[in-house]
């Protein structure tokens, strides 16, 4: 799906990582781990084409910037819009401006409500996003990204504000939904248990040695 070859990133004269090689296969869950500031977010931004690497090359089978959706660490929701409309905005790329000028197609509304139900937010569909708790907002941002039906889902610490129950349920949903449509997830995580439980591969970044990264294939665990 995507090949990363000899990629390095230097910011303000400091190398965050160097000589990074990895391959993102279809239907896989890839975890990125490492301490804060090591470059996990930057790597995800490079994969989403929002940031150019200092060196190296990325070959993608996906259409230029399309089929990729990112769950941002700072969520980037429309606080004055309803929870439902925030989810619905994930489908904008599928419809023309004219078609969405006065609202969204009924089918998209039904799918959005289904995502909200899956993430326990259906009763808050009409509430402004600003009135949700941080954890609810995080689940909402995930719903928005999932509605866009991405082939590659990039998730920057998607469960950081969730309790362990919701964190596990969320990672389950992300993994299963992406596998069903032959898509993949690349996800930065801190909890080693979650990595063991959900990841097919793990990329471990190291802050002290920018060229010391480890790419491991994990034994499948039937979570």
């Amino acid at each position: 799906m995507m090949e990363v070859k000899d990629v390095g990133l230097s910011l303000s004269g400091r190398w965050l990582f160097q000589s990074l090689n990895l391959s993102i296969p279809s239907s896989s869950f890839i975890a990125i781990t490492g301490p804060s500031g090591v470059g996990k977010t930057s790597l995800l931004r490079i994969l989403s084409s929002k940031l150019s690497p200092t060196e190296g090359k990325i070959t993608s089978m996906l259409k230029d910037g399309q089929d990729i959706s990112m769950i941002f660490q700072d969520l980037q929701l429309a606080n004055g819009a309803s929870t439902l409309n925030n989810v619905l905005s994930g489908c904008l790329g599928r419809h023309s401006s004219f078609k969405t000028l006065l609202g969204f197609p009924k089918k998209e509304k039904e799918t959005s409500l289904e995502w909200l139900r899956m993430f326990g937010l259906e009763k808050k569909a009409r509430q402004w996003a600003s009135t949700l708790s941080r954890g609810e907002c995080q689940r909402l941002a995930i719903c928005r990204s999932m509605l866009s039906s991405p082939t590659l889902l990039l998730a920057d610490e998607p469960v950081a504000s969730l309790d362990s129950d919701w964190a596990n349920r969320t990672l389950h949903i992300l993994k299963d939904s992406q596998k069903k449509r032959g898509g993949s997830v690349v996800c930065s995580l801190h909890d080693e248990n979650q990595v063991e439980q959900f990841a097919d591969y793990v990329l471990r970044l190291d802050s002290t040695n920018p060229d010391q990264w480890r790419w491991e294939k994990l034994a499948p665990l039937d979570a």
Binding site: S48, K50, G65, Q66, S69, M70, F72, Q76, L77, A78, N79, G80, A81, N85, L88, S89, G90, L92, G93, S96, S97, T100, L101, R144, S145, S148
Partner: peptide
């Protein structure tokens, strides 16, 4: 900006991204 990255047009990004906050 998030909506633009989800392939929303500038008008859609304004209508569903900036406008609800403003």
């Amino acid at each position: 900006n998030a909506l633009k990255s989800l392939r929303a047009s500038p008008l859609q990004a304004f209508q569903y991204g900036l406008w609800p906050n403003a």
